[in-house]
Design a protein around this nucleic acid. Structure first.
Lengths: 225, 225
DNA sequence: GGCGCAATTGTGCAAGTGTATAATCGCGGC
DNA sequence: GCCGCGATTATACACTTGCACAATTGCGCC
């Protein structure tokens, strides 16, 4: 006997109508909903019910496409990180020119929306504990982190100035400046003028590697004079 | 002392023995347990039961000293941040000497344990969402952040090199380098040699502000040659 | 020594959690 | 048309969560 039942008089409860989307679409919807929730309220806000509601689906469907909540969250993290690095590589490939101009474009792209955004920072922070705990998530982290830094290191190695033995340390330092400015600029956007963070990044990385990145960026039209 | 423990089966269940600690002690214990749990597993790991267990008390006591879980977590965040800035100010006051040496000591102190530690980073990340959501937590954040950066700005202003109009941008950039290196060094400690991060920080901040901080640090005994 | 206060415990509860599984029904293939 | 598969929903369950509140008991004070 069906206990429950708020069957109002007459009709009987009909289950909600739905459409059969493809697997790719549904996975994308669920991952998107997960990212939105983690950005807003951290991992604890990304409950299966909240995710399902945001994706316009019922909770049971999550288990149909993912092994469980943890698996879905891991997939969301992977998509986030790969999205960032892919966008970055794409921005880099679009720029030809001198090594200075290419490095300048790379730096500036990291210090502007959509990469430098509060949502991205809070997402990153929200996933940090999972990176620490889950080996598979940590593998994703290490992979994407090193991909980014290797790209930066290659750009620095192309510069005329640095000696080969210093390139690694310069890449670490440059990466750190970018990370730190990315954090500050995203968390306290009102504390800085438009493109002020990008400009400071170009000046600072430029001084560290011994190149005039700000000038190169202006010449290439990456920022305005 | 009664070694407490559940006496063997049979007897009636007596409630566990306890001691009446002072309010200050109990609050400190609860805050310490909260910080430990957030560092390990994020905010979601800091449940009232887990906190109470770690602090060696029962969950009900939390409500006796704090208005609720959220209030306790806010208090823990305040203690964490004030502890960091206090320790930093103290380390700075202990160093006399040239402006370069003082700035060098300040930079190096931020890029070594106990400040540069994975626990601190994960704590900071764990609280980030609460900073975003809760106005009172955000006030604590802004206060401690600006205290740190103002101190750095004052140190840079004491240097002979920089022009007054540049000090603000230099402080932002220097702070960013420190933040970024702090992140990298804490998250991936195995990727760097001992004091490599501190040395890179001194070189990088030095180039940004136009001073030989590494040399000053070596002269002052802050790092070894 | 014992009284009394309040620090501390224990229990209970309603709401929320992830997951398992049965029941339904959209929709492509015939 | 309609048949059947599987995408999707609905329901159930065991467990955890934060919180309220009464019962207990350590311990300062007379």
């Amino acid at each position: 006997m069906t206990v429950d039942g708020q069957d109002a008089a007459g009709g009987g409860q009909d289950r909600r109508a739905f459409r059969r989307e493809g697997e790719a679409q549904r996975r994308a919807d669920l991952i998107g909903a997960t990212l939105a929730l983690v950005a807003e309220g951290g991992l604890e806000a990304a409950t299966v019910r909240a995710i399902a509601a945001r994706a316009g689906v019922t909770p049971g469907l999550i288990r149909h496409y993912f092994a469980g909540r943890e698996d879905l969250i891991r997939a969301a993290y992977a998509q986030l990180m790969h999205g960032i690095t892919d966008a970055n590589a794409q921005a880099l490939d679009a720029v030809a020119g001198s090594p200075e101009a290419r490095l300048a474009a790379f730096v500036a792209a990291s210090l502007r929306p959509p990469v430098m955004a509060l949502d991205v920072v809070t997402l990153w922070a929200g996933f940090l504990h999972m990176v620490r705990r889950d080996p598979r998530t940590r593998a994703i982290h290490a992979e994407t982190y090193h991909a980014y830094r290797d790209r930066l290191e290659a750009l620095i190695a192309d510069l005329p100035g640095p000696e080969p033995g210093q390139v690694r340390a310069l890449a670490i330092a440059g990466n750190a400046v970018i990370d730190g400015l990315w954090l500050e600029g995203a968390i306290l956007p009102d504390s800085f003028g438009p493109d002020e963070i990008a400009r400071i990044g170009l000046q600072s990385v430029g001084r560290i590697v011994g190149a005039d990145l700000e000038g190169a960026a202006i010449a290439a039209g990456v920022i305005t004079a």
